[in-house]
Amino acid sequence: MTTTTETETPKRPSRVTPAQLRDAGVTRRSRTARVKIRVGAVLTALVVLPVALADLLPLPDSTEQDLASRRLPPLTDGHLFGTDQLGRDLLARVLDGGQVSILIGVLAVLVSGLIGLAAGAAAGYFGGWVDAVVSRLLEAQMSLPLLMMLLLVVALFGPSVPVITAVIAVAQWPEVARLTRSMVLVEREKPYVDAARTLGLPHRGVLFRHLVPNVVRQTSLVVLLLLAQAVLLESALSYLGAGPERPFATWGRLISDGQDYVTTSWWLVTLPGLVIVLLVVGVNLLGDGLRDAVKGTKKGATA
């Protein structure tokens, strides 16, 4: 191997063999990131696609009860996931619940991303009292008993989809805000900001037209990791009985309902849980891989 490379490429002799290149840390790192992205994408699609297409799939209605076929084990009578305690098709219920759970997750992450981006960017750019207010808010929220407060608010305003979305968004904005703030702090010292100011642009224009586009890519990667957390948080709220109201069969509620039958009908808890795990692992891997890939290309340019 080494002899052939030496003879065939005489103009640039190198003792680095392709095998060494393949095993070098840097290339391995980017390959790891690629593996993570691919596996993550596949797992995510495995859950999201059926959930999105739930209405088109040939499945029984998720609310259709059939007391004669209660708690059928998976793969009987065309019920891939079996049936629940009221004879409803579990797969249909999981996909139905997934629509609500994923919708809440995505909306919550969008809202928290926007709030976090705006607050973090303003704090980092303007400094002074804006920064003081935002930073104190971030600190205060870190020391709050978060889940208790979330349960409290849901108990107060009623467990509707907008309330739960808002509650999860409020729980998550600090993460985005802290990251955006630290990145804007670095970015605002760069010459192009001075240039834009010298050209007479108002602060708001500099911030949102020039600074924010430069940090939004990094932020959007964190948002992907937050989506995984949002799905978990929503399922925990549902499990504790503070999820969306009854007609929605969210994943957390499916598990809490099936818990009483776990010794006799394992699938009622196990399968919805596995679906959550599949989605969350997928999204986490995707976010992780993308973050590593960006870090690799930028070579630590963004701290």
Binding site: K36, V39, A228, L232, S235, A236, Y239, G252, I255, S256, Q259, V262, T263, W266, V269, T270, G273, I276, V277, V280, V281, N284, L285, D288
Partner: peptide, 21 residues
């Protein structure tokens, strides 16, 4: 790394019920 991510991705009520069972 992937295994630890998977452990982190399990809803705690679900992994709890599974361990219990």
């Amino acid at each position: 790394n992937i295994v630890t991510i998977a452990a982190q991705s399990m809803p705690e009520f679900w992994s709890g019920i599974m361990l219990l069972t």
